[in-house]
Nucleic acid binder design. Structure first.
Lengths: 206, 206
DNA sequence: ATAATATTGTAATATTTTTAACAAACCAAA
DNA sequence: TTTGGTTTGTTAAAAATATTACAATATTAT
């Protein structure tokens, strides 16, 4: 399939969320203009993004909220549950275990890893903490698809390498460092400092 | 000044981090090629990004790591400390208080707000928790520049509005909802579900 | 000094992304 | 059933972003 831009995929996620809110408000039909307004973009952008995947609206009328949310969910692969592992139980890691939003979207934390002997074999939210060296066995047993990296910078690359060796191909990386991976592995970086620094730049300029 | 793209500013942050790592390793000089390799981009991109702000290298030699880090720090406004307030002390909020990376970059959490009577007036990491209605007074006293929004979706817009009314113009928003603000206010969204959904899309395609 | 090698800064080009514009399609009212 | 009002889907244009290519400049070795 033609390569779709990260921006488009990111916006589909926001449309998905917006549609969820509209459905909660019992709204049955929505225009691209309305979706755009709610997200601070143009209606052409919304229609263009959707057009990469098909035609989901009715001219003169708009989109059925439930049907469109369903289609976008299908496009994004949210019609299935994803089994997520968490590597590293510092502050960030612990916060993520309780982050309800993940579960709501079908991402379930099924395994926890750490390399601190004090933490290994303890229990956290009903999940046993495994040693990172047992990655392959547990990842296979729990059918892990995605791994959240919340370990210190100095360990991030080697931990990701270990998971890659066990066949994991998708990572959400919270360690503020850049990671090298083979072409068929995807790492999405979640770097809060970068966003704060963008704010710093903005305040400095304006 | 000419508008610089968000992408460029984001990359400057990563160069800044990379330079910090190189300096720790006692590297004194670095080429655009090396910086690019370390971040998985092209050297032309690095040079182009820097060229918006001046000329910092020596032809044939490269860049002095310390001097370039310093310049980028100046560009990003990191030569000053920023006073940050945290709104909402759920799981995410608590994790952020302890997130050392912020302090390292010069972002100091100076005030905490919540609207839960049980939490207001309690202490957290040496900081008193204030009621959100006292925002203006405290923000002024603590000279708050930036506010991290870690409140539930349903409160996010109104809390941000309250801060805007007190003159705050920069927000890091963790609530997974889209926020409407005046043109001179900047909101950066930190939405972990969006990144996970991009991974879901990737795994579904490949 | 000169030649060989390295690397920047930037102009030109290419690519990607966004926006504008509008025919086609649908609905509702008369 | 026709007219008027909407809104999509898509093509074309515009804008933004990234890459290529190379002259200019610096260093090092001979």
């Amino acid at each position: 399939m033609k390569k779709i831009s990260d921006s488009t995929i990111g916006r589909l996620s926001t449309y998905y969320r917006t549609l969820g809110e509209l459905i909660e408000q019992k709204v049955q039909t929505v225009s691209s203009e309305k979706i755009a307004d709610l997200n601070g973009i143009t209606s052409a952008q919304v229609r263009k993004d959707l057009s990469f995947f098909g035609t989901f609206g009715k001219r003169g009328l708009g989109y059925n909220t439930v049907a469109l949310k369903d289609e976008i969910g299908r496009i994004l692969g949210l019609k299935q549950n994803w089994n997520v592992a968490l590597a590293g139980i510092g502050n960030i890691g612990r916060a993520l275990i309780d982050y309800g939003e993940f579960k709501k979207q079908g991402f379930f934390i099924k395994a926890i890893f750490d390399n601190d002997p004090q933490k290994v074999n303890s229990e956290l939210k009903g999940l046993k903490v495994h040693h990172i060296d047992d990655v392959c066995e547990i990842a296979k047993k729990e059918k892990i698809n995605i791994v959240i990296i919340a370990v210190p910078v100095k360990n991030a690359q080697s931990v990701i390498d270990q998971f890659i060796d066990c066949g994991i191909r998708a990572f959400l990386n919270f360690a503020p460092t850049s990671i090298k991976v083979p072409g068929d592995v995807m790492v999405k970086n979640e770097n809060m400092s970068i966003e704060l620094e963008a704010l710093s730049y903005y305040l400095t300029q304006n």
